[in-house]
Amino acid sequence: MQEIINWSDEFLAGAMVIIQLFFVSLLMVIVWGLLGATAKLSNSRIARGIANGFTVLCRGIPEFLLLLIVYFGSAVTLTNIARSWDPEIRFMDIPPFWAGAFAISLVIGAYATETFRGAFLGIDKGLVEAAKALGLTRFQVFWRLRLPMMWRLALPGFGNHLLSLLKDTALVSVIGVQGILFTAQQATTVNHKPFTMYLTVAFIFLALSTVIVVTMKCIEKYAYRHLEAAR
């Protein structure tokens, strides 16, 4: 217990890092998911091809590996470019936090693409026709009808993605992002109490995922209040 208290500042700081990582990736996940889903449902063969390539790639490679590829790939490329300007430069990288957030968002974004696509397909065509018949433009129909209907249908599946996203933030310690897992690894090298330290990490993750589950429940309650009322 004393050991946890000794390292509590570091754990707190680490928790803040993964929370930030979570929200930054979440924003990107929503963007990838929306772009991917609209591309897959579009008439353009090129857009569909790109989106299919994206989901095949990002769902097919282990996320741990993708993280390494994104981070070291970008670092090698950046270093080479920088060297052509100044041969003295030895190493240059994208900040690990951003590389990590980006890599995780690609993976979860690929899953979200499929969830959003399914939700878009689940929208009652009659509603879209009704909105069209009222004179709304295609853009207005998308913004005021398709999107609000879509996210409601996507909510249960999306909740799962949020939990995966949270857990994936543990991976980024490998590229040096100082999240809670990184803290635990550092502490272990000093105090040789791996079980206590990793258990602490587990509890922090459990606490954060509980917050997500509860939040999703509240959002669902709001989103489906029209169904609840109609019972």
Partner: peptide, 30 residues
């Protein structure tokens, strides 16, 4: 379409909006 109203067999009201919001949406947007 802005000058032609249409009523469908299956009503097609927007389920997530209140009745009055259903009536207001197109007035506001269009």
């Amino acid at each position: 379409r802005q000058e032609v109203g249409m009523v469908f067999q299956s009503f097609n009201l927007f389920p997530h909006m209140k009745v009055i919001e259903n009536l207001m949406m197109a007035q506001r947007m269009v």
